[in-house]
Simulated assay, not measured.
Amino acid sequence: MPADVDAPDTAAYGLTFRQLAILAVAALLAYTGWSALRAVLPVPLLAAGCGVVAVVAVVLALGRRDGLPMDQWLRAAIRHGRAPHALSTLEQAQPAPPWVQTLPRPRIPLPAPLRLPATAIDADGQIHLTAGLDAAIVAATTVNLALRTPDEQTALIEGWGRWLNSLAAPAQVVVTAQPVDLRSHARHLEDTADRLDDPVLADACADHAAFLHELADRRDPLRRQVLLVTPAPTSAGVSRVPRNRRSSRPSRSTTAPGAHDRVPGTRAARRRAEDTARALSGLGVTARVLDGDAATEALAASADPYRPPRARGIAAPDALTTGPPMRRTRSR
């Protein structure tokens, strides 16, 4: 069994069908150009042109960059270059105001609608995706195999393999290294040391705060975070949205297509995440399913890992904030 099960099959001379097709098209173009221009251009110039075509074909067929074949990488680069780079959270691109003078073809295009893969996050942490799937996130710790005996290592690997074999849909394992803010911990210790009555504890707390400040100046500490995303297909048939859904778009008319085709009460992704947490706990891994706030923080940290997470209890920028109703007193 090959190590890479996703590797394409080879057709001839260790080349895949895609590589052979690229080389065949390049050879056909070179032969056609040689036959058409042989009576017009000198042979050295034709040979140089055919050599350039051959080099380009070999680079496209055999070259790789960022783990992708060169032709696919170039196709993705062209698609990225033609895609709009200025995006807006509005559902449709808004025209410029009438008081703004715009050119027929402005140099800076107007922002295009931002299409996010997720439409809403429930309070229990279930994420509703636009592709007809729901997902949940499991935060897990790691296990040091080097400190285990060979029998324990075999048991851990077999347990991990059983969890992989139990998957009915593709899952995602994300391992990130995020910076740790030691200065905030040091400032908290300094504030705590000023309120301690015992001078010995106050000195120890101040010394530890100074150590954290020194460590933050000399090093860039990182913490490793392991997240497992477990998707699950949704059920269609009921055109209603759960009330406890916290959508990033408050208006119902701006909900993404397919978001209303979910059956209320279905928590397939949440149940699958809980099963994953139980399976990993048998391997000595501390795993927990993230709730809505924790899932939001994890997604925000993945998008911008160097920005501190928003404190819990604070409303989102687009959330509608209301206060208690005011009581009117009647004047007599």
Rank of each mutant, 00 (worst) to 15 (best):
P2G: 02
P8C: 02
D9H: 07
A12K: 06
Y13H: 11
T16Q: 04
Y31M: 08
W34P: 06
W34E: 13
R38K: 12
A39H: 15
P44L: 01
A47N: 06
A48E: 08
G49A: 14
G49M: 10
G51V: 05
G51N: 05
V53N: 08
V53C: 09
V55I: 13
A57N: 02
A61Q: 00
L62T: 10
R64Y: 02
G67W: 05
G67R: 02
P69S: 11
Q72Y: 03
A76F: 02
I78E: 10
S88I: 09
T89M: 06
L90Q: 07
L90V: 05
Q92G: 01
A93H: 00
P95G: 11
A96P: 05
P97I: 05
L103R: 12
R115P: 00
L133Y: 14
V138E: 07
A140Y: 03
L145Q: 12
R148V: 09
R148M: 15
I157L: 15
I157A: 14
G161D: 04
W163L: 09
W163K: 03
W163S: 03
L164H: 09
N165F: 07
L167M: 15
A169R: 13
Q172T: 15
V174G: 01
A177V: 03
P179C: 08
R183D: 15
H185L: 14
R187A: 15
H188I: 04
E190K: 13
E190A: 13
A193Q: 13
D194M: 01
R195N: 09
A202M: 00
A204L: 09
C205A: 14
A206H: 08
F211N: 02
F211K: 06
L212V: 01
E214W: 11
D217P: 06
R218V: 06
L222M: 09
R223C: 08
Q225K: 03
Q225D: 10
V226L: 14
P231I: 00
P233R: 06
R240Y: 01
R246Y: 03
S247H: 06
S247K: 04
S248F: 11
P250N: 07
P250W: 05
S251N: 11
S251G: 10
S253G: 10
H260I: 03
H260P: 05
H260S: 08
D261M: 12
G265S: 06
G265Y: 10
G265H: 06
R267E: 11
A268N: 09
A269M: 02
A269K: 00
R272V: 06
E274M: 05
R278V: 07
L283D: 05
V285A: 07
V285R: 01
V285E: 10
T296H: 10
A298K: 02
A298Q: 02
L299D: 01
A301Y: 04
A303M: 02
D304L: 12
R312W: 11
G313P: 04
A316L: 15
A319M: 12
L320G: 00
T322Q: 14
G323H: 09
P324E: 13
P325F: 00
S331E: 04
S331I: 09
